[in-house]
Computed example of a mutant assay.
Amino acid sequence: MNEMTPYEAIGGEAVVARLTDRFYELMAAAPQFAGIRAMHPEDLQGSRDKLFMFLSGWLGGPDLFVERFGHPRLRARHLPFAIGSAERDQWVACMTLAMEDVGIEAGLRQRLLQSFFNTADFMRNREG
């Protein structure tokens, strides 16, 4: 029996889309995420679309980002932005709330949170 991918476990494309939408809704509205919101363009649609495509493949679903843009090169793409521990922690907290809000099961949410943290930590490019 094949183990289900995280993409399948959370509910596939529809839930990844809801997760991405909720992430950006929270980021735009919650004062505690103002630091990471300021790093994004006024119109969040392009960022939202890229995160959706990235998460699709990252979670084990269709590799939409790679098909459209090539290798994610996450660290290189994020180098223009000053990312320290505070920005990492804001991003992870925002994603944690988004996962809770869309109803991702607690055990899976915890596993994803560890992976999200590791990826966000890898994006850090400055101290502090």
Rank of each mutant, 00 (worst) to 15 (best):
A106K: 12
M53Q: 14
F69T: 00
P72H: 09
V102L: 10
I83S: 04
G61E: 08
A28V: 02
R48G: 09
R77T: 09
R48L: 13
L97Y: 02
L79H: 03
I36L: 02
G61Y: 06
P31E: 15
L64P: 00
E25V: 13
A120T: 07
G35Q: 05
M39A: 13
F81H: 05
R22W: 10
L113R: 12
I10N: 03
A9P: 03
L74I: 09
A82M: 05
A34T: 11
T119Y: 00
P31D: 15
F116D: 00
E105L: 07
F33K: 01
M95R: 00
L113M: 07
L44H: 08
D121S: 14
Q90R: 10
R88E: 04
F116I: 10
Y24I: 11
Y7Q: 06
R48C: 11
L108A: 12
R111F: 05
I104M: 05
P62S: 01
F69P: 00
V66D: 02
Q110Y: 07
R88W: 06
G61Q: 06
E25H: 11
F69Y: 15
G35H: 04
V16A: 12
K50G: 02
R37V: 08
V92S: 05
Q90K: 03
T119G: 02
R68L: 03
A38E: 11
E100W: 06
F116P: 00
T119Q: 10
G84D: 15
L97S: 05
M99W: 01
A93K: 05
Q45H: 11
R22Y: 05
P6E: 07
M27A: 15
L97I: 01
S115N: 11
V92W: 10
G11I: 11
E87V: 11
F81S: 00
N118S: 14
W91C: 07
S85C: 00
L64G: 03
C94H: 03
D21Q: 13
R109Q: 14
M1F: 12
R68Y: 01
D89K: 07
R109C: 10
V15F: 08
E100F: 05
S115R: 15
L79S: 04
D43N: 15
E100C: 03
T119D: 01
G70N: 08
A106F: 08
R77W: 04
E3F: 12
P72L: 10
L26F: 07
T96N: 13
R22T: 15
Y24A: 10
A30T: 14
L74W: 04
A93R: 11
G103T: 06
G11Y: 10
F33L: 02
R75Q: 12
G35L: 13
D21M: 01
L113E: 06
L74D: 00
D21E: 15
S115H: 15
Q114T: 14
R77A: 09
T119K: 02
G46Y: 02
E8D: 15
Q90F: 06
L59I: 09
P6I: 00
